[in-house]
Computed example of a mutant assay.
Amino acid sequence: MLDDDPDGDWTSAGLFRCAPDVYRIPLPLPQDGLRAVNVYAVPDGDGWTLIDSGWALAESRELLAAALGQLGAGLGDVRRFLVTHIHRDHYTQAVTLRREFGSRVAVGRGEQVGLEEVNRSARDPFKVHRVRLLRAGASALVEQIERREMDAGDLSVWEMPDEWIEDGAEIAVGEQRVLTAVETPGHTRGHVVFADDTAGLLFAGDHVLPRITPSIGFEPNPSVSPLTDFLTSLQLIRSRKDAVLLPAHGAVGMRVHERVDALLEHHGERLDATLAAVREGRSTGLAVAEALPWTRHRRRLPDMDTFNAMLAVMETLAHLDVLVERGAVTITLQDGVAHYTS
């Protein structure tokens, strides 16, 4: 076990003490640019509560078991998982370990809609994304997706949780720690963060990340305006007591308010750039996405792989929808494609 090093490689496997009685366990995300997800272990009576769980993969399970072993515990000592949202790298390993060891799984109430959609029989898992891409004028990208026959994987790992977490719920973890659940929709409809106000910590999931901004609305049944939800949730977290950021992806230690301010500024700049592209005559979501740089490396849309290009176009639509809400642009539909003008 090591004390956490904010300047080190946060993806390195192991067990890292990041606060008194709080341990960070990075678990692998193969074929994912994020490379790892942070799971946090907190003592809870004679067992452990884990915040998020990792992706249901053999390698992830082995590394989680090894890290818990350094704490003198095993997978069977995990009493419950408090899950920030239902993306596979946060939720699915909790489900598979529950089957074997009987641990409890809890997730935000707002994720019920998404989980019910995932578990609906005869469901096309990519239908909602195809519809949005076609609305953006990205028919060629839809064809790429269909040629790849993108596999949704084993949907049974999205079984229903044992408990729905309500907004504002106070969750006792052991005798001394109380976590307050705060609904922060945007990344997903039911995303929650867990605030330990006494210790000055925020288990932020994907809502506040130290180096990137999360994808918006990539879920089975997104809300009408996920970016509006996300920006409102950021402002809510900014209004709360400041804390040390414990993110799902990235190094620990940044102050929450500092990073929230940067994220709000980023999306303000992104909205300005999106509006400028519309004013230049780019009228569709695809055309606007092609005009914008992507990621910290400022990549262009044609240089991105199919999955990330899909995320980029859908995020562009989310920004365009906010501009429509604010009256900065108007929208018309032509043959199922949305066209935006200022």
Rank of each mutant, 00 (worst) to 15 (best):
D3R: 12
D5P: 01
W10F: 12
A13H: 05
L15R: 10
P20S: 11
D21K: 01
R24A: 10
R24N: 11
I25D: 10
P28S: 07
P28A: 07
P30A: 02
P30G: 09
Q31N: 14
G33V: 11
N38R: 08
A41K: 00
V42F: 03
D46N: 13
D46V: 08
D46A: 15
G47D: 06
W48V: 13
L50S: 09
D52R: 14
G54C: 07
W55Q: 13
E59N: 05
S60G: 15
A66Q: 14
A66V: 07
A67C: 08
L68A: 07
G72Y: 09
G76E: 05
R79Y: 01
R79K: 15
F81I: 06
V83H: 00
H85S: 10
I86E: 12
R88Q: 14
Y91Q: 06
Y91H: 05
A94Y: 02
E100Y: 00
F101S: 10
F101L: 02
S103L: 14
E111C: 08
E116A: 10
V118R: 14
V118G: 03
A122S: 09
R123S: 09
D124V: 06
H129S: 12
S139R: 14
L141T: 01
E143H: 09
E146Q: 12
E146I: 04
E146M: 10
R147V: 11
R148K: 09
E149P: 00
M150W: 14
D151L: 02
A152P: 08
G153C: 09
V157A: 06
M160H: 11
P161Y: 07
D162C: 02
W164H: 06
D167P: 01
G168S: 11
G168Y: 00
L179M: 09
T180C: 08
V182I: 15
E183N: 13
G186S: 10
G186H: 08
G190Q: 04
G190I: 06
V192W: 03
F194Q: 03
F194E: 04
A195M: 10
D196Q: 01
D197T: 13
T198Q: 12
G200S: 09
V208F: 07
T213R: 09
P214G: 06
P226S: 11
L231V: 14
L234D: 07
L245H: 05
L245W: 01
A248W: 05
A248C: 13
H249D: 05
G250E: 03
V256L: 09
E258I: 04
A262N: 07
A262T: 08
A262R: 12
L264Q: 10
E265K: 14
E265L: 13
L271D: 11
A273E: 14
L275I: 00
V278N: 02
V278Y: 03
R279P: 05
T284Y: 01
A287Q: 15
A289C: 08
A291C: 08
P293K: 12
H297D: 15
H297I: 10
R300L: 13
R300T: 14
D305N: 15
N308Y: 13
M310T: 15
M310Y: 04
M310F: 00
L311M: 13
E315H: 10
T316H: 07
T316I: 04
A318D: 14
L320G: 06
D321P: 06
D321A: 15
V322N: 08
V324G: 04
V324K: 01
E325V: 06
A328T: 03
Q334S: 13
D335C: 04
Y340P: 04
T341H: 13
T341G: 07
S342L: 06
S342E: 11
